[in-house]
Structure formats: structure tokens, C-alpha cells
Design a protein around this nucleic acid. Sequence first.
DNA 1: CAAAGAGTAAAGAGACACGG
DNA 2: CCGTGTCTCTTTACTCTTTG
Length: 305
Amino acid sequence: MFTKHRNVSPEIGAWTSLHARMDLSREDRQYFMSMVKGFEGEKHFDEWLYRLPSDTLILNDLILEVNQQIIQCDSLVITGKEVMLFEVKNYEGDFYVEDECWFSTSGLEIRNPLHQLKRSESLLATLLQKERFSFSVTAYLVFVHPEFVLLQAPRDVSIIFPGQLPRFFQRLKKEAKPLTQKHHQLAERLLTLHMDESPYHKLPAYSYNRLKKGILCPSCFAFFQLHHQRLVCPTCSYRIQASTGVIESVKEFQWLFPEKKITTPHIHDWVGGTVSKKVIRTCLKKHFFMLSQGRGVHYVARNEK
DNA sequence: CAAAGAGTAAAGAGACACGG
DNA sequence: CCGTGTCTCTTTACTCTTTG
């Protein structure tokens, strides 16, 4: 059971938008690509988590703070038997290890993911102790890409390679035990402690005026055109409803310009006039909460009212 | 000099039409 | 039938002017 689902984070959303609407530097592009790749790996891992027995608590993308230190959990799984922390890596190609140092295919040294893992593990254990839960924590480093190879891999039981995933999940299924009230309490407590804002939010410099305006195709990130009251992608022929496109554009607008007010004219400009103000107004009214009346009208997300 | 007032532009509501 | 566009009317905010 997914207690907390994995959503497109505001960070990935903002980056995706910027990538389509402006020219990114080579480093920024690389940073973005690796983030997308990581996200895809996490979604891949979710496919495995889906197959777990229904009385398993799964919390994705948790951000917790312990002693002024941050733990970012890709997946946290609570079964009747154990609490497991998963760090998911979507590395592809041949990597190798030499004296605790990890190197990528190109020979570039990367941060030893085991260090990060052990740190998260002990921080989470501290947190549970602090919150008076007596569960122990096991952390796993999961490699999900089928073409990942780690040469001279350390004999560390916390590493799960792609080929070991079926056996690992089979074991979890076999050893499943029913959850108790305490387990549910832990999940709830972790959810309240979860911080929505990632403290490592990093975006390139951008300004409203220099961004390309329009509605992005979610499939190929070209700009939509309006044909017979539907949005049609000129590149991949993907079609969606105008209202859907507007809502997605407003999301991007919020990610990139949280300080700007959502108004019909603002959004009309943001979508480059692809759809009429009337459509935008109808959409905003339907999906957001309208504040004040007449000229000063602006909209806020329904839960921010 | 400042508060009140007038004028103007912006924004939404509603009625109606049209077309896939 | 639903979603969209057009037109008109109403509400509201902003700005400029007037006046004590």
C-alpha cells in the first residue's frame, strides 16, 4: 500500500519547463538529465514495490530532518518484520570500485553511494529512537538499470543488483508478517515530519521575459497549437484538451514563479495566447480558488485557501 | 497639501451562438 | 451535449484632477 506516492517534484517540474523554454548551459543540461534518469530509476523501482503484499506501508520521496541534518529517502518500506530504507540508483554501464572509491564508465570518480546510505541509515535510526519507536532500520542501495555492472564490487549485503531484485522481493513476500498499530503510527508520524520543500533546490538563473511562452506537449516538449478547440502537438501529434494544457501550464508557472499571482491575463501571456482568456478563466475558476472580485481577482490552489 | 471625486481600464459574469 | 468564442453589462482598482 502506497502511503505516500512519488510525484513529479517541483524541482523536476521546474527544470523540465526551463529546459523547453530556454537554452540551458551544458552543465545545467547534464544536471537535469541525471535528475530525470534518477527519477526514472525510482519509478522503475516502484514497479517492484507495487507487487508487495497489500499490508506493506510504502512511503516514497520522504525528506526528514534529524539534528539539523537532512535525510532524503527514495523509498521507505515498513513491513511487519522490518523498516527498510532504499536508495535507488539508475546507473548504466560499467562502474568499478578501488579502495572505497567509485568510478563511472568514463573513469570519473563519483561519490561513494554506500557512504550516503550508511549516513541515512544511522540518521533514520536516530530519528526512530528519538520518536520512541523500537524498530531497527536496514538500508539498501538498489541498482535498477539492467545494464549496470559494478566491477570489484564490495561484498556488502546492503547492495542489491538488478539481477538480485526478483529474489529480494520474493524473500520479502515470504517473510511477510502482519502490520501492527505501531507500524501505522510510525508511518503517520513520518508523514507529519516530512518536509515538502527540498533544501537542495537548485535551479539555473532565469527570468520571465526571456522564457518562451506557450503550452508544452508532455510527450515531446514542443509547443502545442490549437486546432478545433483541442491542443495538438505539431511534432508528435499528441492531443489533449485545452483545459488540461492550461492546468499543466499553471503548475509550471507556480513552480517557476511562486511569488507571482495567478491571474487570467498572467496565464494568458504565459501560454503565449495559445488559448483564449475565457478558457483560462473557466479553467482557473474550476480548479483554483478565486480571491476577491473585479479587477483584483487572482487565484490560489484550493488547499491554500 | 491632501482627501474626495471623476474618469478609465481591467477583469468577471452571463447570455447566446456554433461546431465537432 | 460539451466546450469554446463573442458580445454586453457590472464590478473593481488605479490614476488624475479638483477643491477646501
